[in-house]
């Protein structure tokens, strides 16, 4: 079905059919592909070179750095330590939460230091990811279902959902910081006196609520676009056959919207795993709201190489999650026609 409704940008035009046959007449098919390939490489070169410079170079550089020792004054000992190859020591330090000891070797990082925060930051990152993406999916689905209906003022609602999306995250964070202030509107509205940013769970929920507010619209619009690709006749036919609303939702809407939904969830999950702005500004990472990204940023000024190891670990985690999504959950971004096929099963 999705293959009929406009080709995806990430699908070879061969499956769409028409485009390749628009070439000049009288040129052999082989020559055409060859000349198109030449054209394509010239046209793509600037983008590929630019991305290689700004992404590939830093990745490689980060990996190289992560196997180097940090030179400079050891924050734990106050002694100068030279740089040099470190093997996998930086990685071990993060994963085992070991810090270099004054007498050489390593000891468990004292609580409160950055080194002692790796697993809690990982847990926090995954907590935020799972909770926000779940809430956003459910709320976004509901919003999309409403926006897909015809009613007066529908365009107004569709415009309104773009407002949270358009507000910069930094401003969103400050706005919710104000809403969650002790004397702020949240406490007054619910007649509570919670120090929202002052202790662990309120702080975590403050971040979750602000993030859900900011990003649900994006989710809703992606799901809405998926819903709109389902032809109305399918529902009519199901109604004639006597399917209940719940059956129509479960047996038509859900499977047909699944490819779009999976891509939306994948995008949001990868975005949530690198969450930085919101907790950084809203809570400053205090009270166990430090995400992996915040931990990397805090580490940078204490040692590039350790930070590079941590950012590489973060990158690998995100890559693995993306891989699992694409491989096992059918969120096939590069070849959505394949995902549609899976969705139909």
């Amino acid at each position: 079905m999705a293959t009929e409704v406009g080709p995806t940008p990430v699908k070879a035009p061969a499956s769409g059919g028409a485009p390749i046959h628009h070439g000049p007449k009288g040129v052999g098919e082989d020559n055409k592909i060859l000349s198109q390939g030449k054209w394509a490489s010239w046209l793509l070169a600037p983008t590929i070179i630019a991305l290689a410079v700004v992404i590939v170079y830093p990745i490689i550089s980060a990996i190289v750095m992560s196997f180097q020792k940090d030179a400079g004054l050891d924050p734990a000992t106050g002694l100068f330590t030279a740089g040099g190859p470190a093997g996998v020591q930086n990685y071990v330090n993060w994963l085992a939460q070991q810090c270099s000891a004054p007498a050489g070797g390593t000891v468990a990082c004292p609580p409160g230091t950055l080194g002692a925060q790796f697993w809690s930051a990982t847990a926090t990152t995954f907590f935020f990811t799972v909770v926000t993406v779940t809430l956003e999916t459910v709320l976004g689905f509901w919003m999309a279902m409403i926006m897909a209906r015809t009613f007066k003022g529908r365009s107004m609602v569709r415009a309104a959902v773009l407002v949270p999306w358009a507000i910069p995250t930094a401003v969103t964070a400050k706005l919710w910081f104000f809403i969650f202030a002790f004397e702020g509107i949240a406490n007054k509205l619910f007649n509570t006196s919670i120090l929202w940013t002052g202790s662990e769970w309120p702080a975590k929920w403050a971040v979750v609520i602000a993030d859900v507010w900011k990003t649900t619209p994006f989710m809703a619009l992606l799901i809405l676009a998926g819903l709109q690709m389902i032809p109305a006749e399918v529902y009519e036919a199901a109604k004639v056959d006597g399917a209940t609303a719940w059956q129509r939702f479960r047996l038509i809407t859900l499977p047909l919207v699944k490819p779009a939904l999976m891509v939306a969830i994948l995008f949001r999950t990868l975005d949530a795993l690198r969450m930085f702005d919101l907790p950084y500004i809203l809570t400053g990472g205090a009270n166990n709201t430090t995400t992996l990204s915040i931990l990397v940023i805090n580490q940078i000024r204490q040692g590039f190489n350790a930070a590079a190891a941590l950012s590489t670990i973060t990158f690998i985690i995100i890559f693995l999650v993306a891989f699992i999504f694409v491989r096992f959950l059918g969120a096939n971004v590069v070849e959505q026609s394949g995902a549609t096929g899976k969705g139909k099963k």
């Binding site: 991305l51 980060a62 750095m65 690198r274 930085f276 940078i300 590039f304 990158f315 995100i318 590069v334």
Partner: peptide
């Protein structure tokens, strides 16, 4: 190429910042 460009758009900013900071 498509996969590379899509992957690039999901790339975590923190993975760039450390080497760029040093550079």
């Amino acid at each position: 190429v498509l996969g590379f460009i899509l992957g690039a758009s999901m790339f975590p900013g923190v993975a760039l910042i450390t080497p760029l900071f040093q550079l």
